[in-house]
């Protein structure tokens, strides 16, 4: 099982039925991500990147084909099983950070830990994770509205790492940041990769994609190249 790819897509298609006819958001896509790899999925707007990300992230299911996470097919999983995968196996990092506005930075990182392990003292791990992504301790009790974009993304990365997921799934992680902050965030992600983490990153930015080991090019729902 250890040799199995972390993520494997076998002939995956996603079809939306429209009045004008079927639209293939993904058309017979095949690829895999091995443990420890940093893979970027690149493509222009409307190419099917987000659909692909949602499939890998167990947020959506394909119309046909098989997606395997850690060698286990997610195709016939129930909603609760998919949710369990999202909680335990995948660490999400979003373009818009997607922190919970009612919670502080500390609580945002603590939240997945409570979901997985229940209400107990998680302070040591939360603080360790926030320090690891360069988040200063004096801002831990601040809500997302009181943080800059860069700070929010650091919290988002710490949250994604909270439950020690099998891989990190990053959706345009620097899309809402300036170039300086983008570099800092990409450095953090690059460090995580160097520590052995598996990363799958969706981006349209070639500079960001440069941090990846492998770049998969997608266009009109099909993989058209790999660099």
């Amino acid at each position: 099982m250890d040799d199995a790819p972390v993520v494997e897509l076998i002939d995956v298609s996603k079809v939306y039925q429209m009045k004008a006819g079927d639209v293939y958001a993904l058309n017979h896509v095949n690829f895999s991500v091995r443990r420890g790899e940093f893979v970027a999925i690149m493509g222009p707007s409307g190419s099917g990147k987000s659909t692909l990300m949602n499939m890998i992230g167990c947020l959506d299911v394909p119309t046909s084909g098989t997606i395997k996470i850690n060698g286990v097919s997610t195709t016939d999983m129930t909603d609760d099983e998919l949710t369990e995968h999202r909680l335990n196996t995948i660490g999400f990092i979003f373009q818009k950070f997607n922190l919970i506005s009612l919670l502080t930075a500390y609580e945002n990182v603590e939240y997945p830990l409570i979901l997985k392990y229940g209400q107990r003292d998680h302070s040591e791990r939360v603080k360790k994770l926030l320090r690891m992504v360069g988040f200063t301790e004096d801002r831990m009790q601040h809500t997302p509205y009181e943080l800059s974009g860069g700070q929010q993304q650091r919290v988002s990365i710490a949250r994604a790492l909270a439950n020690d997921p099998t891989f990190l799934l990053c959706d345009e992680p620097t899309g809402n940041l300036d170039s300086k902050m983008s570099t800092q965030i990409m450095e953090i992600l690059s460090d995580l990769h160097k520590q052995g983490r598996t990363l799958v990153m969706v981006t349209h930015n070639p500079e960001t994609a440069e941090y990846a080991d492998r770049v998969i090019i997608i266009r009109d729902g099909e993989i058209v190249g790999e660099e």
Partner: peptide
């Protein structure tokens, strides 16, 4: 949107 975020990071429907 908040519900979407909660669901995406592993919150169950029942929760």
């Amino acid at each position: 949107r908040e519900v979407g975020i909660l669901r995406s990071i592993g919150t169950y429907r029942s929760q």
